[in-house]
């Protein structure tokens, strides 16, 4: 699953940090994030609101603007996207790396036909002529499963349903056959049956186009159904990482464990859920030590004083918890 990490292919993120200067002080939205995405791999980034998952994605894409400030390394094909001049980054964005968003209605331009927006990307990144672009646009609409593509190319975003809009946005993202797709909560605004269609479309496209995908979501179910590896974020940091199968089978961070317990499962009707008490901390006022300790039932003195490092636990597994053994040994959630 994660074979090609060190060969310079794929995406390598090291020490990615995003600071925001807010009226209430400096907010550490993303802190020291390391992430590897191998070619063809689908990596899930899961967390609650304010965990930094979306900012991480936007930082990779270079979309953070003042008052935000990004440091660290984002290596892509041997180049560092963070240090790269804007002009060069623009050439990579939309061609080699593409991004899709949660709300396609706001991500698409409402006053331009969908077809035009699709071709715009081709104009920016390819040398195709008008007729070739039209053909490519049609082909893309078919790829993402938009019926009556010929007619729909001339329609405006508001004439599309939510699911079709998301498909259109994926088509635009795919226009230049990207090698990496960054998906920011692409199905959160959609109904379940439509979410199911879009996720399965993403899986198909990943296979057919050999893309890497980073999927940001708050829904553990979405990760369980799609991703190869996953990283759990809390208060701007990755707190646990591993293959999806491993993490779901035996979480090693109390937060992951709590998240898994918070989601109702089949066959446990009307029982109390093992919720996490309290609310996530403010990013401008993080607790000392482990940011999770005020909500953690495993917490001891050391957690209040020292921040646990993200330790490698072998088998491509990492966790940032002093008590990961106790967490792993704790009784199963079900």
């Amino acid at each position: 699953m994660s074979v090609a990490i060190d060969t310079g292919l794929g995406l390598t993120v090291r020490g990615l940090t995003a600071l925001f200067n807010t009226p209430r002080g400096m907010a550490l939205a993303v802190a020291d994030v390391d992430l590897d995405v191998a070619p063809g791999e689908m990596v899930g980034l899961v967390g609650e609101s304010g965990s930094g998952k979306s900012v991480t994605l936007r930082s990779i894409m270079g979309l953070i603007q003042t008052p935000g400030h990004v440091t660290g390394k984002v290596e892509w094909g041997g180049r560092d996207l963070v240090a790269m001049p804007a002009e060069e980054l623009r050439r990579i964005r939309g061609s080699e790396i593409a991004m899709i968003f949660q709300e396609p209605m706001t991500a698409l331009n409402p006053v331009l036909p969908v077809g035009l927006q699709l071709e715009e990307n081709l104009v920016a990144h390819t040398r195709l002529n008008a007729r070739e672009r039209r053909a490519r646009a049609l082909q893309l609409m078919n790829t993402v499963g938009i019926p009556a593509a010929e007619r729909r190319l001339n329609e405006y975003p508001h004439q599309f349903s939510g699911g079709m809009r998301q498909r259109a946005m994926i088509a635009i993202a795919l226009a230049c056959s990207p090698k990496l797709l960054l998906a920011d909560e692409p199905t959160t605004a959609l109904d379940v049956t439509i979410q199911d269609q879009i996720l399965k479309l993403l899986l198909d496209l990943r296979d057919r186009l050999a893309m890497s995908v980073v999927l940001v979501t708050h829904d553990l179910g979405v990760i369980a159904g799609t991703c190869d590896r996953m990283a759990v974020m809390y208060a701007g940091r990755i707190v646990e990482m591993g293959t999806v199968i491993d993490v779901f089978r035996q979480p090693r961070h109390p937060y992951t464990r709590g998240l898994l317990g918070s989601v109702p499962r089949a066959g446990a009707v009307r029982t109390m859920l093992s919720s996490i008490e309290g609310t996530p901390p403010s990013l401008t006022d993080l607790p000392a030590g482990c940011a999770f300790h005020p909500r953690c039932s495993f917490a001891t003195d050391i957690c209040r004083q020292e921040r646990p490092p993200l330790l490698s636990l072998g088998n491509d597994r990492k966790a940032a918890c002093f008590h990961h053994d106790r967490v792993a040994a704790a009784e199963a959630i079900l």
């Binding site: 109904d191 199911d196 829904d219 159904g225 779901f248």
Partner: peptide, 25 residues
């Protein structure tokens, strides 16, 4: 049944690539 199949479950070992319900409302 389609609704149930489409709802993401927390079991990564039970994956399906079949779309639960085609088309849109």
């Amino acid at each position: 049944k389609a609704l149930l199949d489409a709802a993401p479950e927390l079991d990564p070992t039970q994956r399906s690539r079949v779309v639960a319900a085609r088309g849109e409302l």
